[in-house]
Design a protein around this nucleic acid. Structure first.
Lengths: 257, 257
DNA sequence: CGGGGGGTTGATCTCCTTCAATCAACGTGG
DNA sequence: CCACGTTGATTGAAGGAGATCAACCCCCCG
């Protein structure tokens, strides 16, 4: 409602000939297509196309007509909500394999912004919706993914509503660390090392804080030896248990069913 | 993990012979069964049973084995998350037709507590899961409902992360008011009148505030004429637009697609 | 060399929490 | 019928966590 857009396709994204085989797709077994059989995959393959965005580019504005859905193939995007006076809250972090868009709705509810360089595997909405009706495996997987996202959103509500600034930072770091570790398939032994994919401002938007508070709390965690920093983005977690305690989480990683 | 439970069925709930015909069920066209045809409905009818809870009773503890799923038929329940030190955050309000439980998971992720007297229509989990695989209409409806809940959770993230105490209260009141109006099918003309279904403490849990702040802000909104109060629960909204402004929302009701 | 984006740090202010007293409504048992 | 305890709510005073405003740094890049 507040956002004005041209309705024209994004022309500043790099045109992209790169068409990839689904077989060798890095998100083949985690995305919305994860449960599809070979024949079902071919149907998806027919209607898919790739789009590429540079860091900082807006994928879609809240309120815009949304004629496609898709999956993040590589890179990170953020879902953000904005109030009229400019206050913003990030409501989701879209990582590889995450799904964008909602079948059955034609206007985007949030701003989607590429946080890093981003590649998406897209489907025009109505062919995808048709396919979904005929292919239970897609709908099943989408339900599963949506339930997971709902859990994540609810976990984040606890962070936003009840945690202190320090706990919020620790929570964010532990989420990124764990996700990164699962991606690299490293065991949980030894120190975790990763690069922050977010600016201080983006972290603040995610955590419901100001960027100054984020900066101060990161410095504090560094001072207290909970994390090490090289430069501004390169993080080492010497002791994950310690970090989880700082996050106010159960030390034992908690339930994950 | 923190919660201990007997694993025994709740015996203090009133035993309930009241078996109702789905045809005349008040949530027939909004619940998970909404899209079912008559024959599909009969399959559900075979495995359904009702459970009744009194206000304040816990329906299920976080971490408990969860051998059923179900819908709220009447009354209100809350989904709550708790930290080890006792801080709590409500992460959902379950109203009539809302679904409880997650197919494919067997431990509850949240505490579910009856906020008012509550009637639920339950299904044992594994028969329901079987049925879901064979009945796309159920899975389709569940996906739709889950996507709606995800949107609601994300909207709430903005409230928790970025709104002031006064705005939070106004947001909660407007949500309850709108929901109540849609239930009563009243037009949006004229003042809205309803009873708060939540205690000050429950509101605080939902809003990420203390109950004292809730009380103060409600008093302030009353003082400023945004709401009228009779007793502690009976609310009149003379001007919804005014309330929405106080909530920091777009005055025009915003997007609802 | 200048400029700008991202980040850190300091000083001050303010909104919300914390702790505590008080109140009204209600039920219960003597 | 009234003292008593309980539960939900209101109100006050004091303190603190985080916001706000502002200066400054670092580094890259044109």
């Amino acid at each position: 409602m507040t956002q004005i857009n041209t309705g024209a396709p994004m022309l500043n994204e790099r045109s992209l000939a790169v068409s990839q085989q689904c077989d060798s797709c890095p998100i083949r077994h985690r995305a919305v297509c994860a449960r599809c059989e070979t024949d079902e995959l071919e149907l998806l393959e027919d209607i898919k196309y790739y789009r590429k965005f540079e860091a900082g580019q807006t994928v879609i504005w809240s309120g815009d007509r949304m004629d496609f859905v898709g999956s993040v193939v590589s890179g990170i995007a953020s879902l953000t909500q904005t109030m009229e006076d400019g206050r913003t809250q990030m409501v989701g972090l879209l990582l590889p394999s995450d799904f964008v868009g909602r079948p059955g709705r034609d206007c985007a509810a949030y701003d989607v912004v590429a946080t890093t360089d981003l590649v998406m595997c897209c489907f025009r909405k109505s062919p995808f919706e048709d396919l979904m009706l005929r292919t239970p495996h897609i709908a099943q997987r989408l339900l599963e993914m949506t339930l997971d996202e709902l859990d994540a959103a609810r976990e984040w509500m606890l962070v936003l509503g009840r945690k202190t600034a320090r706990e919020k930072i620790a929570s964010l770091l532990s989420i990124i660390a764990r996700r990164d570790a699962s991606l690299k398939l490293k065991g949980s032994d030894g120190p975790l090392v990763f690069d922050l994919p977010l600016t201080r401002e983006a972290m603040a938007d995610y955590l419901g804080l100001t960027l100054e508070t984020v900066s101060r709390q990161i410095s504090a965690l560094k001072r207290d030896g909970v994390i090490h920093l090289e430069g501004k983005r390169h993080v080492t977690i010497p002791d994950l248990t310690r970090l989880l305690e700082e996050a106010g989480d159960d030390a034992d990683g908690g339930v994950f069913a």
